[in-house]
Amino acid sequence: MNPTATLTDTALAAATAVARLVPATTPLTAVPARPGTGPAPTATAVVASFVGSPSADLVLVAEEAVAGALLAGAEGGAPLALADALRPALEGACAVLGAGVLDSARTEPAGTAVADDALLFALERDGVAQAWFALRVRAEPSAVVQVPGVPAQRASMHVLYDVEMTLTAELGRTRLPVRQVLELTPGAVLELDRAAGSPADIMVNGRLVARGEVVVVDEDYGIRITEIVAGEQGTL
């Protein structure tokens, strides 16, 4: 498959992941944008940069599509910020792109956020665009120099060695409807899916890479690594 076809297929897979994770009231389907179509220049776009191999700029215009979800629990508390509500969808696109780090999201007008050379996709319902997703790759994987004697995957990571990544220690998870999330108050207790004393998961960009036990280091919390997770899920 030629590089252009690979990039197009990857972008469509990323757009499909976004469509699945956008908190719209009805399911959305990602399709390549038709010529001459796109978001209104004044529409609010959520923009984030992905640093990886390849690196890319991601743009999601979906304020109207998620308006109902944002306001669903407004009576019980403040509605979610648009960038916070759409970040899981952007993270879903990054999972398709591969290893890397997603920067914090910001909002700006779609007219300036969607670059002319970006791949644009409509997120449709019944053939009508409800939202838009744009992906602009900034570094082609083929641009990475192969290091003699080093596997291609490891060589491609050399460009990332000085990039700082955020590691997150996760004690457990639970799932709640948006309504209950917006109704949370100080003092509320959430039951997690992890027994007391179980090791904490150590995540990088949403991927499990290790497990460890919680310790205290100079009055700060720390994690003592007890296990490195091998295999696809634990591979950076």
Rank of each mutant, 00 (worst) to 15 (best):
P27L: 14
L28T: 02
L28S: 05
A30T: 02
A30G: 05
A30Q: 06
V31E: 13
V31N: 04
P32N: 05
P32R: 02
P32Y: 06
P32Q: 08
A33G: 01
A33Y: 00
A33I: 05
A33C: 08
A33S: 12
R34S: 15
P35R: 07
P35A: 08
P35Y: 06
G36I: 13
G36V: 12
G36M: 12
G36H: 09
T37D: 13
T37F: 06
T37Q: 14
G38N: 11
G38S: 11
P39D: 00
P39L: 02
A40N: 14
A40D: 15
A40P: 05
P41H: 09
P41A: 15
P41Q: 11
T42V: 10
T42S: 14
T42D: 15
A43M: 01
A43D: 15
A43T: 05
A43Y: 02
A43F: 00
T44H: 06
T44N: 03
T44W: 01
A45F: 04
A45L: 06
A45T: 07
V46E: 02
V47E: 03
V47P: 05
A48P: 00
F50W: 02
F50N: 00
V51H: 14
V51K: 09
G52N: 08
S53P: 08
S53Q: 13
S53V: 15
S53H: 10
S53G: 12
P54D: 09
S55L: 08
S55M: 07
A56E: 04
A56N: 03
D57N: 13
D57L: 14
D57Q: 15
D57A: 13
V59W: 07
V59N: 07
L60E: 01
V61T: 02
V61L: 03
A62R: 02
A62Y: 01
A62S: 08
E63N: 05
E63T: 08
E63W: 01
E64G: 06
A65F: 05
A65D: 03
V66S: 01
V66T: 08
V66F: 02
V66K: 00
V66W: 01
A67T: 11
G68S: 12
G68T: 10
G68H: 09
A69K: 09
A69E: 09
L70Y: 03
L70G: 04
L70I: 03
L70S: 02
L70A: 06
L71V: 06
G73S: 05
A74Y: 01
E75R: 15
E75C: 01
G76K: 08
G76N: 09
G76Y: 05
G77W: 11
G77M: 12
G77T: 11
G77A: 12
G77C: 12
G77I: 14
P79Q: 11
P79A: 11
P79H: 11
P79E: 10
P79R: 12
L80N: 00
A81G: 15
A81D: 15
A81Q: 14
L82W: 11
L82N: 10
L82E: 11
A83V: 12
D84N: 13
D84A: 15
A85I: 11
A85T: 10
L86S: 03
L86R: 00
L86N: 01
L86V: 04
R87V: 03
R87C: 04
R87K: 06
A89E: 04
L90Y: 03
L90F: 02
L90E: 03
E91Q: 15
E91D: 15
E91P: 03
G92N: 08
G92I: 06
A93R: 03
A93W: 01
A93N: 02
A93M: 04
